[in-house]
């Protein structure tokens, strides 16, 4: 991963704009699925896909986190999602997990099992954000765990499904000489 300062200003802007478009795709898919499905955790499908894609396509450190900040800001602006002031955390925590694991496993996009592992860990951060909210609201400790497991179970399932597209998409993008 290149340092952001070593890139030309135009290239840096190009990468940032691509991250912005990934954020737009996350926002649009979230909005469309929210209107039609309303299944718990379904939005993780495209969120994990585009966060992983931004991490793999853009050679900047924290690219997924930047994409998450942008999509979180869009969600706040247009009133999407149910997170109150913690809404942006819901976007940033999976992205930071993806950035962290891309540092540990630099070629995670080449194998399905590494993609599944990273996606499962990234999606499971929903447990943390739900835990924080439930704990602050004063819910019973045992029920917090049950409630968070219900919420994060769906997120992990859909997040893993979304990550399964990554190896194929990256291979195709490399074949087209995009990456």
């Amino acid at each position: 991963m290149k340092d952001i300062n070593s890139l030309s200003k135009r290239k840096k802007l190009e990468y940032l704009l691509f991250l912005g478009f990934c954020a737009v795709f996350i926002f649009i898919t979230k909005a469309l699925l929210r209107l039609h499905l309303n299944i718990p955790g379904h939005s993780m499908f495209f969120m994990i896909f585009f966060l992983m894609l931004s991490n793999r396509c853009v050679p900047l450190r924290y690219s997924a986190t930047i994409c998450a900040i942008l999509s979180g800001s869009l969600a706040i602006m247009f009133g999407m999602g149910k997170g109150g002031p913690l809404l942006i955390l819901k976007f940033i925590m999976p992205a930071m997990t993806i950035d962290f694991f891309s540092y540990l496993i630099p070629t995670f996009d080449q194998k399905y099992w590494t993609c599944i592992l990273v996606a499962a860990l990234a999606s499971s951060t929903k447990f943390i954000s739900s835990f924080i909210v439930d704990y602050l609201l004063g819910m019973d400790a045992q029920l917090i765990v049950y409630h968070c497991l219900i919420k994060s179970g769906g997120a992990i399932f859909f997040g893993v499904l979304g990550s399964l597209m990554i190896p194929m998409v990256i291979t195709r993008l490399k074949a087209y000489d995009i990456i």
């Binding site: 691509f18 912005g20 990934c22 795709f25 894609l53 993008l173 087209y176």
Partner: peptide, 8 residues
């Protein structure tokens, strides 16, 4: 995605 890259 390719279009997104081109537009960026």
């Amino acid at each position: 995605i390719i279009y997104g890259f081109m537009m960026a």
